[in-house]
Amino acid sequence: MANDYLISKWRMYFKAIDAKNEGRITKEYITEDKTKFADYHHLEGTRREDMMERIEQWFDKYILQGKSGPISEQEFVDMLNDDFKADRDKFVKKMQTSFEESFEINNLDKGELLSLRGRFRNCFPGFWSGRDCI
């Protein structure tokens, strides 16, 4: 089982995703979020469709984890904790992959604004791995 520190980070992560503070994340929220992302970045045509599909796939895989209905904060924490208890190394790899994929989605210009080894990665060291939290 994950320690209290890690569970608190998962709760913080859920709250960051649940920007509306509804206490749940739904497919509708994902649709709204990916549309705002595409609008904000002025994506059009095929590029817009591809990016929206990538965002939805990421949410389905790493946040909803294949569930169709809304998930609460506790369900989110329980899903992560179950994965963590089942195989810690596999869990850490999955979360690292999650952040790498999220980085690729957000790094639209493939430029220096975001650097996987720089600022972006430094924002998240305690959420999923690291000697001090797991």
Rank of each mutant, 00 (worst) to 15 (best):
V92S: 07
H42K: 13
D33E: 13
R47K: 08
D39Y: 07
G111P: 03
D39W: 02
C133W: 09
T46W: 00
S68V: 04
Y5H: 07
N107A: 03
R88L: 08
H42Y: 07
N3M: 04
S115Y: 10
G45N: 01
D60C: 01
D132N: 12
K27N: 05
C123A: 12
G118C: 08
I71W: 00
R24C: 08
R54P: 00
S115I: 10
D18N: 13
H42G: 05
Y62E: 02
G130D: 08
S8R: 09
L114F: 15
R121A: 10
N21P: 01
D132W: 10
R121W: 12
K20F: 06
E49V: 13
M79D: 14
G111Q: 11
I17N: 03
D109A: 08
Y40L: 15
R131H: 12
A16N: 14
N106H: 11
F59Q: 02
N21V: 10
W58P: 00
Y29P: 00
S115T: 12
D33I: 09
T35I: 13
L43H: 02
E44I: 05
E28N: 15
D83K: 13
F37P: 03
I30C: 03
G66P: 01
N81V: 13
K93G: 06
E101N: 12
M52D: 00
D109F: 07
E22H: 10
L80I: 08
P125L: 07
D18R: 02
I17R: 11
I30T: 13
F91H: 14
I134K: 03
K110I: 05
Q96L: 12
D78T: 14
E44Y: 03
G118T: 10
L114M: 15
K9Q: 14
I17C: 07
G130A: 08
